[in-house]
Design a protein around this nucleic acid. Structure first.
Length: 372
RNA sequence: GGACAGGUGGGUGAGUGGUUAAAGCCAACAGACUGUAAAUCUGUCACUCCUUGCGAGUUACGAAGGUUCGAAUCCUUCCCUGUCCA
């Protein structure tokens, strides 16, 4: 049975620790979910994600898997978990983000999104109902409703119209989900939109509450706005969401921002930064960034991060990683991604521990002081 | 000894009279990246100066001379490299 169990709430900040129960295992929250868009977290093996990293849940993407290899193919092959040999939980994004990122290849209508495949130009239509069907075929544990993610900045009028359409889509998706997919094993989250307008965020949240959903997401952030605004929108929205349901902010953030979202009552986050930046030579450490290609690391025998327990830091020097990066060796991507994901997952585990021990306020103030 | 071909900025390699401080690629050095159209993309990449400007000056296409208003580009000599013939 899908469910969310709240274990502790920080009385000072409202930060929460809990457990997300899924058909594919428990997920301790707050949690960071590595992004595995095309049925793979780029650069790393499912084995490593389960091993040292010990990730409990990852993301997949409806748009990408629908186009290739196709959700029916994945269904026939036993579902996404089996397909990618990942027995733990999977959350699939609806393709709503691609409505934003594939600007130019799509057209948003009341019925849904008409788009052209970025792979071969084929025309397809995503509706609130069809994206639920695709996600049911994939077998994801947490499905996301189709939403419209607006670019920043957007006018109040455009944001309002878009938000209202997102609400209507969420209603359609949820109705469809209740009719055919709500078996208690899986969950479906609607997404609060409203661009950077507090009143729209509030209105959107209020209307989505009527769905009595399994959990709620805050979307439309990290689309180019100043980071303070992302936090502000989260701060406005999160308290309106049901305390007993998980809250998920989509697509954030930098390491130092993770505790900030948790402090605003967020339980789940995902972001491509640790994996993408890893491949681009940008490594996250306790003491700030290490841009591994820089000449200063040419003969540096130290690990990327002193004291880090990841496979990369246990075995290799910065000099070696720099060499692999400059040589274009694919092993670099793997080692760098292992480290960055370890960093993100460790941060979340530290945060969770702090909340459970009642020490989150101290954790937060220490982090804020030491932020580079 | 002879016949061809060729010597361009860290490398490679365009350029055969002016719009060329010299394309492109590579290397080097920086930067970006936030529900992944990303193992991607962007910038800098001779030196000096300043009023940092589609600024000024200096040096530079093997060497030295020459032709020309003007030469990496044409001519002469020399040096060097490669291939082939003796």
């Amino acid at each position: 049975m899908f469910g969310f169990e709240l274990q502790a709430v920080c009385p000072e900040t409202g930060a929460r620790a809990g457990i997300l129960h899924t058909a594919h295992g428990d997920v301790e929250t707050p949690v960071f979910m590595p992004v595995g868009t095309q049925a793979a977290v780029k650069g790393v093996l499912a084995r490593d994600l389960m091993g040292d990293l010990n990730a409990k849940i990852i993301l997949g993407n409806t748009y990408h898997l629908f186009l290739r290899p196709g959700h029916e193919a994945i269904r026939k092959l036993g579902g996404l978990h089996r397909f990618m040999a990942w027995p733990r939980a999977i959350l699939t994004d609806s393709g709503g983000f691609q409505v934003f990122s594939l600007d130019g290849l799509r057209k948003v209508t009341e019925a849904g999104v008409l788009f052209r495949s970025h792979l071969n130009g084929d025309e397809h239509m995503f509706t609130p109902e069809s994206t639920i069907d695709v996600q049911l075929a994939l077998g994801s544990d947490i499905m996301m409703v189709l939403d419209e993610c607006l670019a920043y900045p957007a006018s109040h009028g455009a944001s309002r119209a878009s938000m209202e359409r997102t609400v209507r889509w969420a209603q359609s998706a949820y109705e469809h989900y209740r009719e055919g997919g709500a078996d208690g094993e899986r969950a479906c989250f609607p997404i609060v939109q409203g661009s950077m307008f507090g009143d729209l965020r509030r209105r959107c949240a209020e209307q989505l509450l009527e769905l009595n959903a399994d959990g709620y997401a805050i979307g439309g952030l990290s689309v180019g706005e100043p980071r303070a605004l992302s936090l502000e929108m989260t701060e406005i929205t999160a308290p309106l969401l049901p305390a007993e349901k998980p809250r998920y902010v989509m697509g954030v953030g930098m390491p130092e921002e993770l505790p900030e979202y948790v402090a605003r009552g967020i339980d789940m986050m995902d972001c491509v930064l640790p994996s993408r930046n890893a491949r681009n030579g940008y490594l996250f450490t306790k003491d700030g960034r290490v841009v591994i290609k820089q000449a200063q690391y040419k003969e540096d025998p130290a690990p990327v991060e002193e004291g880090c327990k990841c496979y990369t830091c246990r075995n290799f020097s910065r000099a070696y990683l720099r060499h692999l990066f400059l040589a274009g060796e694919m092993t670099f991507s793997t080692l760098a991604t292992l480290h960055n994901l370890q960093r993100y997952l460790d941060i979340m585990r530290d945060i969770r521990q702090a909340i459970l021990l009642g020490k989150f306020p101290e954790y937060l103030s220490t982090r804020r002081r030491s932020t580079p």
